[in-house]
Design a protein around this nucleic acid. Structure first.
Lengths: 293, 293
DNA sequence: CATCACTTGTGCAATTTATGCACAAGTGCA
DNA sequence: TGCACTTGTGCATAAATTGCACAAGTGATG
C-alpha cells in the first residue's frame, strides 16, 4: 500500500477555497477564520511544491494545476460526504440516550423488552446521569432532561408533565392517608432541589411549617427510601407508576399539582440519522399517557 | 453547500483499519501507534453513531455498515492520492533551492537566464543562506551545501570540487604574482572557517607564519573585498570563475590544492516531483566543468 | 490448566496541529 | 484620498493527535 495522502484538513481548506476562489468565503463555509484557510493553503502549496493559486486583485485565482486538482478532489469529497450521510440512512446502529436517572430507571428500563421487539436493529444505550450530556460534543444522541419549571431553553419534545402527589409504602400511614400531623412526624422525601413540600401543603390547605431536613438526595434515592418504608415521597406520578402497579407504593392524598416536566432533546447532528429518529418517535409514542392535553 | 465531512484524519485511520481488519496493521501503515488508531476509530463510531467494527478474537471484523462504508471511502481516497501524485508528474511548479550564498551568487545566478529558457515552466526560487534548510520539513526542495572535508553524511550529488587558489584584483600585486613577502603585507582573505592559508603556504613551500586576522567573514564578503582591491582571496576557483572571466580577478599563483566541495541534496518527498528532478538534472548538467574526474 | 502471543482499550501526559486576534500590506473604486 | 475588501503573518492559545505503560480478553500450545 503505497498511497500517500496530503494533510487532509489542509486539503479540505484548499477545496473550499478553490471552489470560491476566495479564502474568506471558504472560511465562512468551514466556520474558521480566513487566516486558518490561508495558512492551510499556503502550507499545502509549500508541501506539494506547486502553485495552486495565483494572486488576483480580489481574492485568489486558480492556476491550471490548481483547477485540475480541484476537478479531481471535489468529486472525491462528495463521495465521502455522501457515504457518510448514507450511514445516517441506515435503520440500524447504536443510539445513545442520556437520561435523568429516575426517569431511566422507572420509565425507560421497563420498556426495554418492548423496544427490543419493536426496533431489533437498534442498539439502545441508556446512560442514567444527572450530568448534562453535551449533544454538540457527540456524548449522546438523545437526552431526557427534567425542567423544574416551564420549558427548556433548547428545542425539545415534552415527554411528561405528570402531576406531583405524595406516595408511601402501603401501610406506612394509617389508612394510607397523609394527615397534617404526619408532616412533623415522618421523613418527607423529595428530590434535592427546592422544597416542593411547601408548595404541596399550600395546595392541601395544611397550615404547617414543613421542616427542611439537613440532608439532600436525588429523586431516585428518595423514591427507593419511600418504597422501603422510610418516609413519604413527594414527586411526579410518572416515575412512581411502576411501583404503584406493583403494589410497593400507594398515593396517600388526592391533592396534587403540576410543576416540572421531562423533555426529550435530540442532537442536531445525530438527529438526522434514521435510527435516532426511530428511537425518538418510539419514545414519544410510548409516553403519551404521561402528558396532559 | 451542505456537505459535511467527518474528521478526515479519523476517516483515514478507519479506512486503513478496515482494509486490514486490524488496528495494529493499520498503525504500521500509517506510522502511528495502535492506540491512536483505536481512538480515532472509536471516536468516529461514536460521532457517527454506528458500529463500523465488531470484536473478533484476533483483531476486529467489519460490520455490514462498515464494509459498505469502506467500499465507498477507499476509492475516494485513491482518487485523492492519485490526484496528489499527479501534481508531482507536472513538469511545472515552484522549486525551492537553498544554497550556500557564494555558490548562489557566483554560479547559479549567472545561469538563471539560461535556466529560464531551458525550463520555462519551472519557477526557481533561490534562497542564499548559510542556515541549513530542513528538507524533511519542506523548507526547500534542493539544497546546495559546502563540505569542508570529504563528503556529506547524507546522500548527495557532487556539484563541484574545484581546487583552491589565491586570487586578487588585476594590478593589486606586482606582476599579479603572489610572493612570500606579500603574506605579511596584505590582507589574506578567506572564508571564516579554519585558516586555509596555512595549508596553502605549505603547498607553495613558503616558510612563513601566516597572521590570523582578528576578524571573521564569510566567503561571499571576502570575495567581494578581493574584487575591490582590498586583499588576496584564497578559495575555490569555481566561485571565482565569473569574476576572472570578467577581468575583475586574476589568479596570482599556480599553486593550488583540493579541499572541500559543494554538494546537491534532494528532498526525499519533493524529489519525486518531475519539476524537482528536472532542476536537479539541469544543475548537474551545467556544473560538470566544476568537477574533477 | 498454565503460559504465551497477539490484539484492542484507556489513563495520563507530551507533542503537534489548528486556530484566532490584531495588525499590515495591497488593490480597486468613488 | 479614503474606504471596502482581500490575503499574509507574528504571537499566543486551544484543540487534536499521539505515545507510553498498563490492563483485559482470546485462542493456541504444551
Amino acid at each position: 500500500m503505497s498511497r500517500t495522502l496530503p494533510p487532509l484538513n489542509a486539503l479540505r481548506a484548499f477545496e473550499a477555497a478553490a471552489r470560491y476562489e476566495s479564502f474568506s468565503r471558504a472560511a465562512e463555509e468551514l466556520g474558521v477564520s480566513h487566516s486558518a484557510i490561508s495558512r492551510h493553503v499556503r502550507g499545502l502549496e509549500a508541501r506539494l511544491g506547486v502553485h495552486l493559486f495565483r494572486d488576483a486583485s480580489r481574492g485568489v485565482a486558480l492556476t491550471a494545476e490548481g483547477a485540475h486538482y480541484l476537478a479531481r478532489i471535489t468529486p472525491a469529497f462528495d463521495v465521502i460526504g455522501e457515504a457518510t450521510e448514507g450511514l445516517a440512512d441506515a435503520p440500524a446502529g447504536r443510539v445513545v440516550v442520556n437520561s435523568e436517572p429516575v426517569f431511566a430507571a422507572k420509565i425507560v428500563v421497563p420498556l426495554m423488552a418492548k423496544f427490543q421487539r419493536d426496533l431489533p436493529d437498534v442498539e439502545l444505550r441508556l446512560v442514567g446521569s444527572n450530568d448534562l450530556a453535551d449533544l454538540d460534543r457527540y456524548e449522546a444522541d438523545l437526552a431526557i432532561r427534567y425542567a423544574k419549571t416551564g420549558r427548556l431553553n433548547e428545542p425539545s419534545d415534552l415527554l411528561s408533565d405528570a402531576p406531583i402527589y405524595p406516595f408511601a409504602a402501603p401501610g406506612y400511614l394509617r389508612d394510607d392517608v397523609l394527615r397534617p400531623e404526619h408532616l412533623t412526624e415522618v421523613p418527607l422525601l423529595r428530590d434535592r432541589g427546592p422544597n416542593i413540600w411547601i408548595d404541596w401543603t399550600a395546595h392541601a390547605g395544611f397550615d404547617v411549617d414543613v421542616p427542611d431536613p439537613p440532608w439532600r438526595m436525588r429523586a431516585a434515592l428518595a423514591l427507593e427510601m419511600a418504597v422501603h418504608g422510610a418516609g413519604v415521597y413527594l414527586g411526579a406520578s410518572d416515575v412512581t407508576h411502576l411501583d404503584e402497579t406493583a403494589g410497593r407504593l400507594v398515593r396517600v392524598s388526592d391533592v396534587g399539582f403540576r410543576q416540572g416536566s421531562f423533555h426529550l432533546l435530540t442532537s442536531g447532528q445525530a438527529g438526522r440519522r434514521k435510527a435516532v429518529r426511530s428511537v425518538r418517535a418510539w419514545l414519544l409514542d410510548h409516553t403519551t399517557a404521561l402528558r396532559s392535553g
